[in-house]
């Protein structure tokens, strides 16, 4: 079933640019002296392509098909928002982070090749409750990738944020390794030496995973769905092909948390909660407000 949560891993990604389809028209010579219909509409292929472009505003339309189908009568379109007052002596903010997909530079090919995904998308893929039920597959064809590269896709705004992105990548790489034992795994980014040095004790399995200092200059899609990366580093340029490319993205504090911080009158500093010091709560300017840093 197409709509089953687990089975509906549809190969379509958010930012695929698809041009508007144009109607078929008859030639100018055919029009003079005739009343032949000029525009001929869409053939099925064009219609499907065009209809699939409409996605961004899709929300419930109130068609009530689900309501009609719901045997236990659990669906209630009249149910209204609930507004209530809440009093508290103490506030803890767990701000979490967001990562903007739309800020990814075009040279990384995100959106043009389904096999280029973000680290957060891979996190969902690795989750048992995610769209592929924990299976790591290529979105394009559902194949198990034999090689996976993590690629830095941002200019680091702070060392802490860069470190957070690399931590996520390494952790993801470990999970992918466990699921696909033979996979070739490579992480490409900047300031690798510092990161490896700081986390030396935790990176004991390093021989099975290449941490490469470098910058990806371009990502070219290959016919088989693979991605050819051009990696520049240490004065050399190298081309390498991967089955799946994961773009490391930079975390930032969510807008929700920012505005909440503002109305509470406290500063939610990035560095503080990204530093990950022993997991305890962090203090703010106000004694009764604390931050629970991301884990």
């Amino acid at each position: 079933m197409m709509y089953e949560k687990k089975g509906r891993y549809i190969v379509e990604f958010q930012d695929i640019p698809k041009a508007r389809q144009h109607q078929i028209e008859i030639d100018l010579e055919e029009r003079r002296g005739s009343y032949k219909e000029v525009e001929l509409g869409f053939d099925e292929e064009r219609a499907l392509n065009e209809a699939k472009r409409c996605l961004s505003c899709r929300r419930c339309l109130g068609c009530a098909l689900c309501w009609a189908e719901c045997k236990p009568e659990a669906i209630d379109f009249e149910m209204e928002d609930e507004v209530f007052e809440l009093e508290a002596d103490k506030v803890i903010v767990a701000p979490g982070v967001e990562r903007d997909m739309e800020r990814i530079d075009g040279r990384f090919g995100f959106g043009s090749n389904l096999n280029i995904i973000t680290d957060l998308q891979l996190e969902r893929m690795l989750s048992d409750t995610g769209p592929s039920a924990g299976l790591v597959i290529r979105p394009l064809d559902g194949e198990i990738p034999r090689s996976v590269a993590w690629v830095q896709s941002y200019e680091a705004a702070s060392p802490q944020m860069h470190r957070a992105a690399l931590c996520l990548a390494v952790n993801e790489a470990r999970l992918v390794r466990r699921k696909i034992a033979q996979a070739e795994i490579q992480i490409v980014g900047r300031d690798m030496e510092t990161f490896v040095h700081d986390h030396d004790a935790d990176l004991h399995d390093a021989e099975r995973r290449q941490m490469q200092e470098g910058v990806v200059e371009s990502a070219e899609s290959l016919e088989d769905g693979g991605v050819k990366l051009t990696i520049a580093g240490n004065g050399t340029k190298e081309e390498k092909t991967f089955d799946l490319v994961v773009l490391m993205t930079q975390p930032r504090i969510s807008w929700d948390a920012q505005s909440l911080g503002k109305s509470l009158g406290v500063t939610l500093g990035y560095a503080a909660f990204l530093s990950g010091e022993d997991g305890g709560l962090l203090a703010t300017e106000k004694a009764s407000i604390q931050i629970s840093p991301i884990q």
Partner: peptide, 27 residues
């Protein structure tokens, strides 16, 4: 009241980007 039978999901005509899954597929 919901018994998790998924009948509603099967009939829903709206396929939006799966914001629960970072836009990976549709929901």
């Amino acid at each position: 009241k919901c018994n998790d039978c998924k009948a509603c999901i099967r009939v829903c005509p709206i396929h939006m980007y799966d914001d629960f899954n970072e836009g990976l597929g549709f929901r």
